[in-house]
């Protein structure tokens, strides 16, 4: 592989205090690609996303976005650079309306002027949100909240979308809807990095995936290859 990747991590070590969660993780996301990071609970998947979006600084390692060194950029400037992060458990502002949540998502200076346009686009993408625009976000169902959270992330017109466990806590049918959405978002040309425990589902959406185990990359490859891998099938897909 050569040329400039959208996102490139190498040798990332990170943790909280004395606890180390990541031991030299390397990862690459090409422009327009959808990449999954799968693995069991506690493998360090969320930590990895926190490192990418600047909420947690790596102790060692490089982290590049295009030709920029992200380890030097404050977290709050990432939306301006085109990186949006939909955090685990969605983390909507429950006491704000749907539209106000979108407004916070458009806080970045460059996004404010485009607010109306992007909001309408989000409403096109999620007609349900348009109906509920004045409803308090906390009163919606889990699936609707997930859509609102994704919509909020889209408000800064990201080039790279980070999704943390978008299927967590949702009914199977809703999970299906969420992944359909991710597919549609991809078609609009966004680069996507998804962290998921729902391996079977995510492998159907992404081009490539990394398997993270106790803070190390245990395997990586094309989705099709991984789905066919007997070891992986046994340990993650529950298939024999």
């Amino acid at each position: 592989m050569n040329g400039s990747a959208t996102l490139e991590l190498s040798g990332i070590q990170a943790g909280y205090g004395d606890f180390q969660a990541l031991f030299g993780v390397a990862l690459r996301v090409e422009p327009g690609e959808a990449v999954g990071v799968v693995g069991p609970n506690g493998a360090g998947k969320t930590t990895l996303l926190r490192v990418i979006s600047g909420l947690l600084r790596p102790k060692v390692g490089t982290l590049r976005y295009g030709d920029q060194d992200l380890t030097k950029v404050p977290a709050h400037l990432l939306p301006e650079l085109g990186i949006a992060h939909v955090p685990e458990n969605r983390r909507l502002f429950p006491h704000l309306t749907v539209e106000e949540n979108l407004k916070v998502g458009a806080y970045a200076k460059s996004a404010r002027a485009e607010f109306a346009k992007r909001r309408d686009r989000v409403y096109d993408l999620f007609p349900r949100m348009a109906q509920r625009r004045h409803q308090l976000a906390g009163t919606m169902s889990g699936g609707e909240q997930q859509m609102c959270a994704i919509g909020r992330a889209l408000m800064c017109a990201p080039k790279l979308l980070l999704l943390d466990e978008p299927s967590a806590g949702l009914a199977p049918l809703v999970v299906q809807q969420v992944f359909d959405l991710v597919r549609r978002i991809r078609q609009e040309g966004l680069t996507v990095l998804i962290v998921e425990q729902n391996v079977a589902q995510v492998l159907r959406v992404v081009d490539r995936a990394y398997v993270l185990e106790t803070g190390r990359v245990a395997a990586e490859g094309k989705s099709a290859e991984l789905s066919a891998d007997p070891v992986l099938r046994r340990s993650y897909l529950g298939m024999h």
Binding site: S53, G54, L55, P74, H76, P87, H95, A111
Partner: peptide
């Protein structure tokens, strides 16, 4: 709006492009 949001959830704010 960011002020009302931050009152509930501090840590997620940088992801919105907000410098707490």
């Amino acid at each position: 709006t960011a002020i009302r949001a931050i009152a509930r959830d501090r840590e997620v704010m940088p992801l919105m492009g907000v410098d707490p």
